[in-house]
Design a protein around this nucleic acid. Structure first.
Length: 490
RNA sequence: GGUCGGUUGGCCGAGUGGUUAGGCAGCGGUCUGCAAAACCGUUUACGGCGGUUCGAAUCCGCCACUGACCUCCA
């Protein structure tokens, strides 16, 4: 039952039972970042989405090889006015750095942000610049199979020819004849036989910094190529899962399919998964639109769109409260709601570990566990997992108040469910309030609160309130109970 | 113009034919010296019109609004 995982496959537009090619092994590839600027909120969506899938696949017993690339070759910008320049090269020129210095700087920043979000590192994180030879080899293969042509030192994929024997557009639902009629008019297209042909290898102009020698002259690989090359190099000619943002479906993923088929005769990917976008004021958050908020901004609150700082786990929780195929709209209100909800859940975790068991249970922990698995198996429905967990938050608080009871075995099971779903699968962490406290600090707080209890007993409310207020100032929340006190670090 | 989506209560966000999603906010109550936290109760919903059905947020049709993509922007 735990293994009946259904995933929505963009290829068939249906939820399909996930069956790996070579169980218990699973190969998963996800399009990673282009490293020329800081990571923004939009980037966190695919990384968190596929991190949860990675974690879940491992949890249900698969041995997963997760490959996420780093695009460090750069790609042209400003195609329209013909002044196309490599983004990484441009950044390097502006900042008087080696291109690889720019790359390293942003790779470091990206990895730091991912660690803050508790996104596990992938199994392999290959860089495009380290696979130039393999990319050239794939270009040669596609050329020799007759699906590409050379033009003025560049190699283009012949989409029209490919489409005669295969279906170009099967992933995105596009029809090539319509593409012919409806394509935007772009400059610099005269080298191509057809406007929708895409570059496999691009001749470098004299001022282009990032360039490599090839039998076609000095140049650099086309953008779509690296993913076809690196995914099949590390996962085989056919593998299980390919993920990425919906905005990459066309042309990027469509071109990947074409390149794989044109070079090996096989479709590489069995399950195509696409996460939806994060929107801001109803519009996609993207670097190109200039409406993005970086993760560092969110963590520090230093952005005029933000009324406060939000912790990494608030961001993670916020994203997981929506199913990955839905858009999620950014707003301070929504983030504040996520922050409070997350706190409520984490407080319950602290309470859970202080609960005392009874002879019998008035709650059904096994049903909770089943519902959480069912939600995960239903195309990674994290908001439903969270809703189920919130039901149990209420149980935990009720048990603590003596309104419900739990048996010893159920208590163990409930702790296991929390460990599994909250921490292992959703990848939430308790941040500071859950870190094993310094015993001395705990003893000191208990001592101070005992003195406060004495003050309360003597009806010296001025003193007791002062202690409470002062503790709150340093982040200790005091909770009065019927027979004593409790506290937690905020 | 084309392809693929979306439109759920104050906010976010699940839900594909009949049963309370959940969180945040609000209101009332319990507890408390007061508060906080917690618990109990509770208000506001399915873009519009028509159809199918005993019954539709959920299926079908039309309309409105809106988003992503349309080839080297990722």
């Amino acid at each position: 039952m735990q293994r009946s995982l259904y995933l929505y496959n963009t290829l068939t537009r249906k939820k399909e039972l996930f069956e790996p090619l070579h169980a218990p092994f699973v190969g998963m590839y996800v399009c990673g970042p282009t490293v020329y600027s800081d990571t923004h909120l939009g980037h966190s969506r695919p990384n968190i989405t596929f991190d949860v899938l990675f974690r879940y696949l491992r949890h249900i017993g698969y041995k997963v090889r997760y490959v996420r690339n780093i695009t460090d070759v750069g790609h042209l910008e400003n195609e329209v006015d013909g002044t196309g320049e490599d983004r990484i090269g441009k950044k390097a020129r502006l900042e008087r750095l080696e291109p690889m210095e720019v790359v390293q700087y942003y790779v470091n920043r990206f990895r730091q942000n991912m660690a803050q979000l508790n996104v596990l590192p992938p199994s392999i994180e290959p860089q495009a610049s380290g696979h130039i030879i393999e990319q050239q080899q794939m270009v040669e293969k596609i050329l020799s199979n007759g699906f590409a042509y050379e033009s003025n030192g560049s190699i283009y994929f012949n989409v029209e020819k490919y489409n005669k024997s295969h279906n170009y557009g099967k992933l995105s639902g596009r029809v090539i004849d319509e593409l012919l009629e409806n394509t935007r008019v772009l400059d610099g297209q005269e080298e191509k036989k057809s406007s929708f042909d895409f570059a496999l290898w691009k001749k470098a102009s004299p001022e282009h910094i990032m360039r490599w020698p090839s039998k076609w002259g000095e140049g650099f690989p086309g953008w779509h190529l690296e993913c076809s090359v690196m995914s099949t190099k590390y996962l085989g000619e056919q593998f299980d899962i390919h993920g990425g943002g919906m905005d990459l479906m066309f042309p990027h993923h469509e071109c990947e399919i074409a390149q794989n088929v044109a070079s090996t005769g096989k479709e590489a990917v069995r399950y195509w998964l696409h996460n939806n976008m994060i929107t801001i004021n109803g519009q996609k958050m993207a670097r190109s639109l200039g409406n993005f908020i970086t993760l560092d901004d969110l963590f520090s609150g230093q952005n005029k769109l933000l009324v406060q700082a939000y912790s990494p786990m608030t961001i993670r929780f916020f994203i997981l409260q929506a199913q990955y195929r839905s858009t999620v709209d950014f707003s301070n209100e929504a983030l504040q709601a996520a922050e409070k909800g997350f706190q409520r859940m984490m407080n319950a975790v602290q309470t859970l570990h202080k609960l005392k068991h009874s002879e019998t249970s008035t709650i059904d922990v096994k049903a909770l566990q089943n519902k959480c698995y069912e939600a995960m198996n239903d195309d990674i429905n994290t908001p439903v997992v969270i809703a189920n967990l919130f039901d149990s938050v209420r149980w935990i608080n009720s048990i603590a108040e003596g309104n419900e009871s739990i048996s010893a075995s159920d208590l163990d099971l409930l702790k296991e469910v929390y460990q599994t779903f909250v921490f292992d699968i959703l990848g939430l962490t308790g941040e500071i309030n859950l870190q094993p406290g310094n015993k001395l600090v705990g003893d000191l707080i208990s001592m101070v609160l005992t003195m406060r209890m004495d003050a309360k007993t003597n009806k010296d409310f001025k003193a007791s309130d002062r202690i409470r207020d002062e503790l709150l100032k340093i982040g200790v929340v005091v909770k009065d109970k019927k027979d004593g006190f409790d506290w937690e670090i905020k």
